[in-house]
């Protein structure tokens, strides 16, 4: 692999993150939770399959947020200059 790839992690946090991403691919199969033929309605009107899908994406967002925090900082020469104002950029964490 070229460089310090997310897909071939060497540190525990990165291994855990890649594991979480792969686990999410498996968890997309909602039959693992017995939802294949479930007729349950959440709050009386949301089919449980749709509720599961929304919950799945909320968990996915949390994983992405962690990825954002532990992602390596880009090389300084590729960052915008002061005049470019990355003002809408929240603080990203450093590589851990």
């Amino acid at each position: 692999m070229i460089g310090d790839s997310f897909w071939t992690p060497k540190r525990p946090v990165r291994i855990a993150l890649l594991g979480a991403v792969l686990a999410m691919v498996v968890l997309h199969q909602s039959e693992l939770f017995g939802l294949m033929s479930s007729q349950t309605l959440i709050l009386g009107w949301i089919p449980v399959q749709i509720a599961y899908d929304v919950a799945y994406l909320l968990v996915g967002t949390a994983i992405l947020a962690v990825m954002y925090l532990v992602a390596p900082e880009p090389p300084s020469e590729h960052e915008p200059t002061a005049g470019d104002s990355a003002s809408d950029s929240a603080t990203g964490g450093s590589d851990r």
Partner: peptide, 12 residues
Amino acid sequence: AKSVKNLQQTAV
């Protein structure tokens, strides 16, 4: 993207 941060924030 103006910067990598913009790309990553978009992803989240």
